[in-house]
């Protein structure tokens, strides 16, 4: 399906609004550089040249939450860090998504004790969980692809009552 075949004589493309908006949102998603622990190193490996994430639009990790739309929680979240995490999430402008990378962020992982929050979904609503300890860079990219699919199926204007199953 080439764009040229749809252009016709007048140079006009028709599409649904939600498709265009979702296309824009997924193809240039900037993650917030929120690497906490070991998963952060695999996230950095995914960003580096061997498993390039810029192929998928994530060219740079923005340090400031005001400029980011995806928060990849990479690593274990401690009880001391939890308020900081929530504050950063609140500072991100809509639309925003959260990807919980690794076992510690998804469910507490190997650590079930006084210091670790058992799953970052106790603090922020999570869209995609990527399992692994740490997940391979390919697994992280797979998680990001699933997130892109989820966004493409969602409606940007109407609120979604049910979670989207991909």
């Amino acid at each position: 399906m080439g764009l040229e075949s749809k252009l016709g004589n007048m140079g006009v493309v028709t599409a649904r609004l939600e498709d265009v908006v979702n296309w824009g949102r997924t193809n240039a998603m900037w993650p917030l550089g929120f690497g906490l622990a070991c998963c952060a190193i695999e996230m950095m490996s995914a960003q580096a040249s061997n498993y390039d994430m810029s192929r998928f639009g994530m060219e740079l990790m923005r340090a400031s939450p005001r400029q980011a739309d995806l928060m990849i929680v990479a690593g274990r979240v401690t009880r001391k860090m939890a308020p900081v995490l929530r504050r950063l999430y609140d500072q991100m402008p809509e639309p925003k998504w959260v990807l919980s990378m690794g076992d510690c962020a998804s469910c507490g992982g190997v650590f079930n004790n006084y210091a670790i929050v058992q799953g970052v979904d106790e603090i922020v609503p999570v869209d995609v969980y990527v399992a692994g300890c740490p997940p391979r860079p390919e697994a992280l990219i797979d998680g990001i692809m699933k997130l892109h699919e989820k966004i493409r199926r969602s409606h940007p204007i109407k609120a979604d009552k049910e979670p989207i199953k991909v």
Partner: peptide, 10 residues
């Protein structure tokens, strides 16, 4: 202390 995991306790 923002990454204190309690490994010694576990």
């Amino acid at each position: 202390g923002f990454l204190h995991t309690g490994i010694e306790k576990t």
